[in-house]
Design a protein around this nucleic acid. Structure first.
Lengths: 265, 265
DNA sequence: AGTTGTTGTGATTAATCGGGTTACAGCGCT
DNA sequence: AGCGCTGTAACCCGATTAATCACAACAACT
């Protein structure tokens, strides 16, 4: 990424505004105006480094989106809404958009997602992997084996695990630290915890999930050398389903074997 | 607008996905995959009318955003997440974005918004006008006079009016229908309502707001001939502040005069 | 009133991006 | 070997937008 993460709020804001659909000029102009509170085209141009003659277009764009008010004098004056109001504005608009999207998509959705029995699927991105894990947990009806590192065990996931045990699914949880383990055994009954077994692979960290011995997901965190703490860590996962699935067959064998060994201790 | 409003969910979804930052190909591909549940590049290409050779690019884009899983076989197979999961995905991402924007903007925000005493500001768009009205209501400490048409009197606005009266501001409300008036007098104490006085202007509908006799906002709805009920109706407003402000001076004179006359009846 | 610097609009150019097409190498199948 | 299909990559072209320039309208000041 070329821009500073949190150091420079102006660049960060401009970046976001562009992502949200504003032109580069409009974004820079708006940020300048938020800083100034109010100003003329010349003033805006000086602090934003937008060519003065283009400030007028940018301002039109912003005015139509309700982000600034304009004064029809000469020179024209521009007045930006407050940071808080602007954020509310975007939030409202985006909420509306996702609502439309949700209804449109659900109207499309046709047949049930029959699950492919052959092949291995790959997933990219931590949020996507978590979603898949949540889906799978929800469809378990016998046994869940879940191994994960601490910071991927969010409250949302703990809730899903709890739900599963409450409908009679047995849970084996591994890899977490002592403190987290205590917290879990406190909140969730019917859980067996076991020590980490990341040693069986050279994967530094990630998750491993097995559902009813018929569905398996494995993930690895891939932020190698350029690991910046603020970045959303990048996670890649693969999963497969079905007794005959090759991934399931292989991993299930290794997994249950090691698992029995460790729990027996 | 060239696309159907609600008739065709596919077009609607594609439109939204593009607005949300997906390329046209990626949007069409995703919608096709949601319909198919799962499919190959060829199948996707047939229903989405995306050139087959470009499906692969689109699919990369979608995979990186966590919207689909891919199977590394030949032919490759693509598996879309459910409509519900996809919506949650976007919601989460956008929430995150607006959060970043909010903090960035508030760090920029410098001096307090000193209010210009001269000149008239213009606002465009119903949401923007409502925001301005809410801002102004919040800073009233003596008297609010508010005239509006029914459907612009949202719960949010009623709440703000109620807040104001509860801190001792007197409220004069006009223009609303009988039923709404009853609802208001029910919810909010210390409110004087009066009949519409839109006759003083040729404006068909809109709002008129006066705060402490020192700040005035006037709006008009401008959806002329092409008024479609689903469109967010377009509203334009002007406002000015300060005893010496020309807009305030003129309107205040007319307004209080007519107001006394009507309420006296 | 004339002069001067500033303001706002419009036209024009340059560069970037994304949609659309084509070429082609690898592969399995007959 | 021949064929069809899959996946990668290169290319072209049109649209959008950043960036520059020319100019008329205007305000201010002498």
């Amino acid at each position: 990424m070329g821009t500073d993460p949190l150091e420079d709020p102006r660049s960060a804001a401009i970046e976001e505004l562009e992502q949200l659909g504003l032109s580069a000029y409009a974004a820079r102009t708006f940020v300048a105006l938020v800083g100034l509170g109010e100003g003329t085209a010349r003033e805006v141009s000086q602090v934003s480094e937008v060519p003065r003659t283009r400030v007028y277009d940018a301002v039109d764009e912003l005015h139509e989106r309700g982000l600034i008010d304009v004064q029809q004098s000469s020179p024209k004056r521009f007045w930006s809404i407050s940071a808080d109001t602007a954020s509310r504005m975007f939030e409202r608009e985006l909420q509306q958009r996702t609502d439309v999207l949700r209804t449109a998509l659900s109207e499309i959705y046709p047949i049930d997602h029959h699950v492919e029995q052959r092949g291995v699927w790959t997933v990219s991105g931590e949020p996507a992997v978590t979603d898949r894990v949540l889906d799978f947990l929800a469809e378990a009806d016998d046994e869940i084996v879940y191994m994960t590192v601490d910071d991927l065990l969010t409250p949302e996931l703990i809730g899903a695990l709890k739900d599963a045990t409450e409908r009679g699914v047995s849970l084996k949880l591994g890899g977490v630290s002592e403190s987290v383990r205590e917290q879990i055994t406190d909140e969730v009954d019917d859980v067996v915890t076991f020590e980490s077994m990341w040693m069986w692979s050279d994967t530094p960290a990630g998750r491993l999930l097995m559902i009813d011995g018929r569905k398996i997901l494995v993930s690895a965190l891939v932020n190698g050398a350029d690991a910046s703490p603020t970045d959303p860590r990048s996670e890649n996962a693969i999963w497969g389903a079905g007794e005959t699935n090759s991934l399931v067959a292989v991993l299930k064998a290794i997994f249950t074997w090691r698992l029995e060994e460790i729990i027996d201790e």
